[in-house]
Computed example of a mutant assay.
Amino acid sequence: MSYEVVLQNKYYLRELIEGISLKDSLEQISYQGSVQLKVPPSFPGIEPGQEIRISGVPYGGGSGMVPLLNPGVVWECETQVKESKHMTVTVYDRTIYLAKSEDECLFPTGGTASQRLRKYATDWSIKLTSLPDTKTKLKKAVYRAQTLYNMIMADLKETVKAGGEMYVPRMTPAGLTLFQIGSNKKVWVLEQLEETTQNRTLEGTVTRVKVIGTEDQQENAPSKVLATASGQTAKYGVLQKIVQDENVKTASAAKKFAQSMLTGQGLTYTVTCADLNTVRAGDKVNLNGLNLIVTSVSHELGDPGHMTLELASSDDVKRRYFLDN
């Protein structure tokens, strides 16, 4: 087998593996793994909280193994005894602690999403690797009791709404970082397709945006319009959205905000094909000449393996994951 599972940096479980799957999505922070094992009587046992990693030979990358899910933590163990003993182990990377932990945070005006992520990770003892500069200065934030992941995504959504780039948190063997969506250097061309479904829709499309002020208006008086922006009205008709934000007070800021809310036609694909075991949610891939973004991926590791991908255009990713409230 081209895959290895190592428990506590000590026990190599390759001979016990019956199956491995990996799941990633833009809707979750943590990479999730499921390992099916046949457990002999001499096995020392697996407990939630233990360190674990999943490695494999990358597709097209030679014979050496690379980490696929590392650092990981055993989250759940389910045992079934029927003639012999079998175990299903659910594994997450260590960002699971940001998804499952709640806190309250107060941030002054002017910090960036990168700077705030550094604080979250430090407070939860999660190792960081080099962080890109998200650049966009954020407004003051008062986060009452909620998960750290919700706070991180609020920061990243605000960055996009202010005209910045799209980022998602991603755990790597070197530590936690922010990955700019679609910035992967190797763009895989999807081949050996087993099934493809395409969906095109105007649901959620916005071709004109009007930004209105938040100050109190006199009764029966219209709201003050700070800015408007138009997109593909000639092609799709007028699909207008009215937005307001208490921190958008100037005409220039409102114009930038309005432009960020314009979206085109929704375009999504579901693809089942031969497995490319290093593909993650947020990666750019090429399907029939189109560059699309992976919104979710499910790997069934094996020789050969299979994967199921949910794909969307960059505009649709922005609308669905960063601009919608």
Rank of each mutant, 00 (worst) to 15 (best):
S2Y: 14
Y3A: 00
Y3Q: 02
E4V: 10
L7Y: 09
K10P: 07
K10G: 07
Y11C: 07
Y11I: 15
E15P: 00
I17A: 04
E18D: 14
G19Q: 05
I20W: 07
L22W: 05
Q28N: 14
V35Y: 08
Q36R: 13
K38A: 15
V39M: 12
P44A: 10
I46D: 02
E47R: 15
E51V: 04
I52F: 10
S55D: 11
S55K: 13
P58M: 06
S63M: 10
G64F: 14
M65Q: 14
P67Y: 12
L69G: 01
N70V: 03
C77N: 11
Q80R: 15
K82Y: 14
E83L: 14
S84Y: 14
H86D: 02
T90H: 11
Y92N: 04
K100W: 05
L106V: 00
G110T: 03
S114D: 07
S114E: 05
Q115W: 01
L117R: 03
R118L: 04
K119N: 08
S125G: 12
S125A: 15
I126H: 01
L128P: 07
S130G: 04
S130I: 09
L131S: 07
L138W: 00
V142H: 00
V142W: 02
A145T: 13
N150R: 13
M151P: 01
I152N: 04
A154R: 11
V160W: 06
K161G: 02
G164N: 11
E165G: 09
E165N: 15
E165R: 15
V168C: 09
P169F: 08
P169R: 06
P169Q: 06
L178V: 03
N184K: 12
W188D: 05
V189D: 09
V189W: 01
Q192T: 07
Q192K: 12
L193C: 11
E195C: 05
Q198I: 08
Q198V: 04
L202N: 12
T205S: 09
T214Q: 06
Q218G: 15
Q218P: 06
E219Y: 14
P222V: 13
K224Y: 03
L226P: 00
L226H: 00
L226M: 02
T228N: 06
G231S: 10
Q232K: 14
A234R: 06
K241W: 03
I242L: 08
K249Y: 00
A251F: 06
S252T: 09
S252C: 01
A254G: 01
K256N: 07
K256A: 13
K256G: 03
Q259F: 03
S260V: 03
M261H: 14
T263W: 01
G264T: 15
G266E: 11
T272I: 02
D275W: 00
A281P: 02
G282K: 03
V285A: 04
N286C: 12
L287P: 02
N288A: 13
N288L: 10
G289A: 08
G289V: 05
V294K: 00
T295V: 13
V297M: 01
H299V: 01
L301K: 05
D303W: 11
G305S: 10
M307L: 11
E310R: 04
S313K: 06
S313Q: 05
D315A: 08
D315K: 06
V317P: 02
F322S: 01
D324G: 12
N325R: 15
